[in-house]
């Protein structure tokens, strides 16, 4: 540890961000060119530029392009939400999917649909409110127990909440077979078959989340030094945390509304981002914008290829990738503090 000349362990953002952006570009191309359909990559590429058969055009433009774009949004939103939540909880395991924030969102949507809401416009805000409730619930539960020093307990509280909400969702579904199909859409995560209209509806929320993030990013970064140190720098930790929770709810609610609950992305993405660029949230968030989409889009592409012509649910794949990372984080040395 105390070796004389310690090198800088992280790469500067201006090197690592363009590199990940390049990888993202390749992943997007792969997602457009590969799939279960009977379409060669060359034909897909031609279709992208509008010189192919109607069928190829349809597959690429109406099926693959939307799901790639939605995968992009969902990945970026979940990655950033995970990084924010980990910073505000000072816990590297605080992942919205694991903590029941996504489940809260699904539950709210289920409840709204049960109560007769059907308009797609409703679901985004309902999902965001559900995410907010889930977020506040799990954080206050963690605070009651005085979890402060044990990151794993927060995850336990979150797993409990997730389990509870999922059972409640299934219970609700038993009463109403009619909307069961409609709702299943939101309880297994996927980016397939979602319309771009839905993504457009997210834009105001994303704009708001972006502005709020700009406002609190500097104080939020200082929370990594502890409550009192942040106060000593003139900040108000309570206010900052609350705004960060609102941002997480906006992002996770939006992601859940378009893609259902996708867990582990919010864990894996910030984990890699920190490994590359260091712990400061101001650097981590930039990388989440590229790494999140990389993970989600490549998982989605894989989900189409692995068992073609059928498809694995995206949520299954992210769990397959994410679970080992979770175990690794928990088992690695002492837990890294945040």
């Amino acid at each position: 540890m105390t070796s004389g000349q310690a090198p800088r362990h992280h790469w500067p953002l201006r090197q690592v961000f363009p590199a990940t952006a390049l990888v993202l570009l390749l992943v997007c191309l792969a997602s457009l060119m590969l799939g279960a359909g009977d379409l060669s990559p060359q034909a897909a590429l031609q279709a992208l530029f509008g010189q192919s058969s109607d069928e190829a055009n349809f597959i690429v433009r109406e099926l693959r392009l939307p799901r790639t774009l939605i995968g992009f949004l969902v990945g970026a939103m979940l990655g950033c939400a995970g990084a924010l939540m980990q910073t505000l909880a000072r816990n590297p395991l605080a992942e919205p999917g694991l903590l029941g924030v996504s489940a809260g969102s699904s539950f709210a949507v289920t409840l709204a649909l049960m109560l007769g809401a059907s308009a797609a416009t409703l679901t985004v805000h309902v999902a965001q409110l559900g995410a907010l409730a889930g977020c506040l619930l799990v954080l206050s539960a963690a605070r009651i127990q005085g979890v402060g020093n044990d990151p794993v307990r927060l995850v336990l509280a979150g797993a409990t909440l997730t389990g509870l909400l999922l059972s409640l969702i299934w219970l609700l579904l038993m009463f109403d077979q009619r909307s069961a199909d409609e709702i299943r859409f939101w309880i297994t995560g996927s980016v397939a078959g979602r319309s771009l209209d839905m993504a457009l509806q997210l834009m105001p929320s994303l704009g708001l989340a972006f502005i709020l993030t700009l406002i609190i990013i500097r104080p939020l970064a200082s929370l990594a030094l502890g409550e009192r140190a942040a106060q000593g720098l003139g900040h108000h930790p309570g206010r900052i945390r609350f705004i960060a929770v609102v941002i997480v709810a906006l992002l996770v609610g939006s992601a859940t509304a378009v893609a259902g609950p996708i867990i582990f992305v919010g864990l894996v993405v910030p984990f890699i981002a920190r490994a590359l660029a260091g712990p400061d949230i101001r650097r981590t968030l930039w990388l989440c914008l590229t790494l999140g989409p990389i993970i989600v889009i490549s998982a989605d592409t894989l989900s189409r290829l692995l068992v073609a012509p059928a498809e694995l649910p995206l949520g299954v794949l992210t769990a397959l990738i994410g679970a080992p990372v979770l175990l690794m984080v928990v088992r690695s040395r002492r837990l890294p503090t945040l």
């Binding site: 200082s222 030094l225 502890g226 503090t337």
Partner: peptide
């Protein structure tokens, strides 16, 4: 915070933070 600086009793910084990263926070 421009007149009073505080060093709290218990301090902790995330792993992987350099000396300069830490000191830069003082400029906030």
């Amino acid at each position: 915070a421009r007149k009073l600086a505080l060093l709290p009793q218990e301090t902790s910084a995330p792993e992987g933070m350099s000396v300069e990263d830490l000191v830069r926070f003082g400029r906030q």
